[in-house]
């Protein structure tokens, strides 16, 4: 059973610092919402209750005709990103198709949240950076193999075990950071100030959800 927790889609704007009571706080600024409810899923019809929310308005030309048709059906202006949030039946009744959800209706200062985003891609990376392997000695006779992974297995079982850590694509994957604190909410500008850093590059889309471990 998935936990039911409300969230919103947003865009990472960047990082800065603010001062509160003479103390400096590092913050990430996220442009959160307004998100429109584009679809509702009911337990009777679909087997589970959820709302689909859309964020970042864009032209209809940016999408394929089948996707554009969905927006015409729900009478919501086209949005670039869509995401589904599972909700309990009581919560589900609060939202109607076409409704715009503002940031202050979901989050307030002091809340603990999780942020899901796509981490910055590092491309094809060696084991030292990707899995924090130790590198070889720089001196004392080491040559050619300073950043190699070493052995990848023993003579038995005569094959390399599945999941053995090797070089490969690093980053550019779905990443969740848990238990971040909201420092401030600015409903006029749809901004959310989160203490610390969040995954991804500036301009990247993120999902802000209420914390699962609370």
């Amino acid at each position: 059973m998935k936990t039911m927790r409300m969230g919103l889609l947003g865009k990472k704007i960047g990082m800065t610092r603010i001062f509160k009571e003479n103390v400096t706080i590092p913050i990430t600024v996220i442009e959160t919402g307004p998100c429109a409810v584009t679809k509702k899923k009911s337990p009777d019809k679909d087997g589970y209750g959820a709302i689909q929310i859309g964020f970042d308005e864009c032209s209809e030309k940016k999408m394929t005709k089948p996707v554009a048709g969905q927006f015409q059906k729900s009478k919501v202006s086209p949005r670039r990103v869509l995401n589904e949030i599972r909700l309990s039946e009581d919560e589900l009744a609060k939202y109607a198709i076409g409704q715009e959800i503002k940031v202050d209706s979901v989050f307030s200062a002091g809340d603990i949240i999780d942020v899901v985003g796509t981490s910055k891609g590092s491309g094809f990376t060696g084991v030292i950076k990707r899995h924090n392997f130790k590198s070889f000695k720089e001196t004392h006779g080491t040559h050619e193999v300073k950043r190699h992974g070493g052995s990848i297995g023993a003579a038995f079982p005569q094959h390399v075990l599945k999941g053995t850590r090797m070089a490969g694509q690093h980053g550019n994957s779905r990443t969740t950071l848990q238990n971040l604190e909201i420092v401030e909410v600015r409903p006029d500008e749809n901004l959310l100030f989160v203490k610390g850093s969040i995954p991804g590059a500036k301009g990247g889309y993120v999902m802000v959800k209420k914390a699962v471990k609370l």
Binding site: I13, G14, M15, T16, I18, F19, V29, E31, L191
Partner: peptide, 12 residues
Amino acid sequence: MDTIKKIEKEFL
């Protein structure tokens, strides 16, 4: 970046 600059301006 303009949003960041605007926020920073409040604290300068």
